[in-house]
Write a protein that binds this DNA or RNA. Sequence first.
DNA 1: TATAGTAATATACTAAAGTATAGTGCCAAT
DNA 2: ATTGGCACTATACTTTAGTATATTACTATA
Lengths: 117, 117
Amino acid sequence: MDSIKDIKSCPIQYVLYINDTLNVISGKWKLPIIGSVLFGKKRFTEIQRNIPKITPRMLSKELKELELNGVIVRKVYDSIPVTVEYELSESGKSITEVLDKMIEWGIEHRTSVFAKS
Amino acid sequence: MDSIKDIKSCPIQYVLYINDTLNVISGKWKLPIIGSVLFGKKRFTEIQRNIPKITPRMLSKELKELELNGVIVRKVYDSIPVTVEYELSESGKSITEVLDKMIEWGIEHRTSVFAKS
DNA sequence: TATAGTAATATACTAAAGTATAGTGCCAAT
DNA sequence: ATTGGCACTATACTTTAGTATATTACTATA
């Protein structure tokens, strides 16, 4: 296993690992979905109500992908009728660290772009 | 202007600012291009040689977008023949902080996914 | 018995992103 | 005079992402 230092200094590994992370958060709906389950588990229809314009097809597709990527955990309770709940995994929760850095850069970058124009 | 704290606690602003940053780095070629000019200015053909499979159309298109977003600076020298050089802006350089966080998360996430399977 | 909620899936479509291939105008060296 | 490098642009195409709309199987309530 390479150390973080090794990876950061190797342009190829660098891009590969970043893409791993990028795939988890890019696309039109991944962030809104993560945002929706950020403060606790939610059900399919609840998430759908949180994100008014998403279609069930997209929500279903993206949830599956997020589950496959280990970011979201899908829990089925055998109540009658069945209840399905989605929540962030531990990795999913820790992605907020990345998102926070993105917000910080976004704000700084925006002010520096405004300053020049 | 909202404080970083305010933004982080508001889901709508949260997603908007992250998307700002996300737009700068997402797509197939933006990261390889940023990676190519990370350690110093480069010319069009040099970047193209660094990224073997990129077409000039894509390189041109992406460089324009990165320039428009204030991440890359395009410098034209009126030598004969004209020389064009691309380099990261100050904002562009500081995006490495975001990228480093992404690498760290990517590595941790990958190990935690392996651990479970 | 009809209506509505839950958790989706199916089919068909449009729009956005990316690829393939060729060509331009400039100059410099052979 | 031709070949080749530089910095692109143009046109046509394919692939991927996202949308629209309808439908399913189940249950609970009015």
